[in-house]
């Protein structure tokens, strides 16, 4: 594992290599080398199992982060390859030729974040939503509560209790409020 990470770090001049555990490492790679790195690991180091692909919206940095998590079944190790996209022009090279399940992941990310993967099969089809006309719903600048209020006829008189206070008032009204113990500190 260490040797593999060492090799790809030198080959692709990676920054920010994190060993989460002995058998999981996360690396940051430039956008243009990301698919090359996944292909290299798959072809030369038997990372033959594609675990998952996900996307995070770092709205403060103006970036989308894509994560490709791949697994080597013989060594039983995982490597997560993280890459960053500009939020203003979210387009990424498609990896549909490596594993077929990436088609679906890319279709989902296209719908949820609006990141385009040119050439990926069926990428324009609906994934979960039908007839969505707003901005992609998983982007953090999409206000879901405001959208819901505008669209779905909220019923007047609905309010939310804080579960802890509400239970204390209703179930144990006579019990004095004790100082909250922090169980994490020993």
């Amino acid at each position: 594992m260490k040797a593999i990470v060492q090799e790809i770090t030198e080959k692709y001049s990676l920054q920010n290599v994190v060993f989460q555990r002995d058998n999981i490492a996360f690396v940051d790679v430039e956008k243009k080398f990301a698919i090359d790195l996944v292909t290299f690991l798959k072809d030369y180091h038997q990372f033959s199992h594609f675990v998952m692909m996900s996307c995070v919206d770092w709205i403060e940095d103006g970036q989308f982060q894509l994560l490709y998590l791949i697994h080597n079944p013989t060594l039983k190790v995982d490597i997560g390859i993280k890459t960053y996209l500009n939020r203003t022009e979210p387009t990424m090279q498609s990896a549909h030729h490596l594993w077929k399940q990436i088609w679906t992941y890319q279709r989902e990310i296209k719908e949820a974040f609006g990141i385009d993967f040119p050439g990926s099969p069926n990428v324009d089809e609906n994934f979960v939503l039908e007839g969505w006309t707003e901005i992609p719903h998983m982007r953090r600048d999409f206000d879901t509560a405001a959208y819901s209020e505008k669209t779905y006829f909220p019923r007047e008189g609905r309010f939310t209790h804080d579960p802890a206070t509400y239970m204390r008032e209703k179930l144990y009204p006579n019990q004095p409020v004790t100082a909250k113990k922090n169980t994490n500190e020993q």
Binding site: V128, L129, E134, H137, F142, T144, A145, Y147, S148, E149, Y152, F153, P154, R155, R158
Partner: peptide
């Protein structure tokens, strides 16, 4: 189905069925 329940602020679920 009455007022949206715990999904009252979701972008994809309705709040009031009787509409």
């Amino acid at each position: 189905t009455i007022n949206g329940g715990m999904y009252y602020d979701s972008y994809s679920t309705i709040n009031r069925l009787d509409k």
